[in-house]
Amino acid sequence: MRDDRAAVLGQIRIALQTAHLPAARATLPLRVGTGQGDTVSLTERFRAEVEPLGGMTYVARSDEQAIEIALKVLASAQGKELLAWADDEIPVRGLGAALAAHAYTRLDLAMPEDADARRNKLLELERAAAGVTGAQAGLADTGSLALVSAATRPRLASLLPATHLAFLKTSMLFPDMASFFRAHPDVTRDASNVVFVTGPSRTADIELTLQRGVHGPKFLHVVLCDWL
């Protein structure tokens, strides 16, 4: 396949001899510290940010409470098939068993290589009523969840179904994105996808009127696991 790499880089080097680049410096000055906060204030901030966007938040103080909330949320989703992260990836003990006891089933998310098989697989996953995930972190200043992909953490669980239910340990709340990156400098090395999710999917493309759930989930529920 054609590749103009050498030509383009060569052009750039020539251009840089005459470039007029106001404010350009050889190195960037060190950045002063980013936001701070204790777990309580970060939790409050997170909720205050995501609620106005249409995201629902709940604070759970135990596994039992978290499971109770989960069952209520899922009952509203109308359907028993779920796209879910592996049990180990969700910080609530007993959740998997509780879901099974309430007749919820999980669809297998692994994509086949073959094109047609992949298509059929996606059509099958489309049936799911809700997606159930954990979260690697929360960003308090924007009300965002950080979801990091892995074999046990499929991307489609937070994307295809109309309802997304996520569990976040409050100890995993960071003041902002910069502090999250600082704590996890290698987060993009091992995962093909890191997505920050901030509220339900939305659009204002028709006469600037807000509509939720245009392509991604219409409903976002975040259970903040306070004991973790």
Partner: peptide, 20 residues
């Protein structure tokens, strides 16, 4: 403050990732 989705994509699917 931030868009609903901020996607960071790094390379191809790996380490046994099931989708993507």
């Amino acid at each position: 403050k931030i868009t609903v989705y901020t996607n960071l994509l790094t390379g191809a699917r790996r380490n046994g990732e099931g989708d993507g």
